[in-house]
Computed example of a mutant assay.
Amino acid sequence: HHMHHMHELLPLMRSYATALTACPPLMGALKEVRSTMRERRHAQRSADANGGCCWSSSPIPSDLNDLGRSSLPLHGDVQASMLIETMRRIVSHPAFERAILTTIFLSSAALAFDMPSVQPGSLEAGVLASLDIAFTFIFVVEMLLKIMAHGAFAHPDGYFLSSWNLLDASIVTTSVASLLADDVEYLEALRALRALRALRPLRVIRRFPGLQKVVNSLFRSIPQVGDVAQVCLLFFIVFGLFGMQFLMGRMAACSDPSIPRKEDCVGTFVDPSRGETVERWWGNDDLGNFDNIWYATLTLFEMATLEMWPEVLWRTMDSDPVAKGVAPVRNANPIMGSFIVIWIVVSNFILLNLFVGVVLENFNAIRKAEDGSSFMSE
Rank of each mutant, 00 (worst) to 15 (best):
T299E: 07
M376P: 01
A109H: 14
A110Y: 06
G226C: 02
D285H: 05
V356R: 00
V238R: 04
L111A: 12
S70Y: 11
M317V: 10
A47T: 06
S57D: 12
L202T: 10
G243I: 00
D286R: 10
E307L: 08
L9P: 00
T297S: 10
E370N: 08
I344D: 00
I222Y: 01
I100Y: 05
D264P: 02
D318N: 13
T316E: 04
T173R: 05
N292W: 09
F301L: 12
G158P: 02
A22W: 04
R207Y: 13
I293N: 02
S175V: 03
D285G: 09
R41I: 12
S258K: 09
L247T: 02
D264S: 08
S170C: 11
A181L: 09
R98H: 09
D77K: 10
V172Y: 02
F301D: 01
I104T: 12
C232K: 00
N353D: 01
L298F: 07
A19S: 06
P73T: 12
N50P: 00
T277G: 01
E188P: 00
L167M: 14
A181D: 02
R191S: 13
S122I: 15
L30D: 10
P24N: 02
G357N: 01
V329H: 14
D48M: 11
A99C: 13
A365V: 01
D183T: 15
S122H: 14
T316W: 03
A109Q: 14
S71Q: 14
L166K: 12
V176P: 04
A80H: 11
R330W: 14
S81E: 15
L72N: 15
P257T: 07
L199R: 00
I340T: 07
L247S: 04
G52I: 10
F246W: 11
F375G: 01
F375A: 01
D182M: 11
V266K: 15
D168S: 10
S273D: 11
R14L: 04
M13P: 00
R38V: 09
L67S: 08
L74C: 08
F239K: 00
I84S: 10
S58Q: 13
E378Y: 04
A112R: 11
H150P: 02
C232Y: 01
R191I: 05
S170Y: 12
P209I: 05
R197Y: 02
V341W: 03
E279Y: 06
E85C: 08
A17Y: 06
C265S: 03
W282A: 01
Q224D: 08
L187W: 10
R261Y: 11
P272C: 04
L20N: 03
E263A: 07
F208S: 10
K368Y: 11
A22T: 11
I222W: 02
A17S: 04
I104F: 09
R330Q: 11
S107A: 15
R197Q: 07
I171R: 01
V238G: 00
M317R: 12
A19H: 10
A29Y: 10
C53H: 09
N364Q: 06
G283S: 02
G51N: 03
V231W: 08
A22R: 07
T18I: 00
D264R: 06
L12R: 12
V91E: 05
Q119D: 13
N348W: 06
C265H: 06
S81A: 14
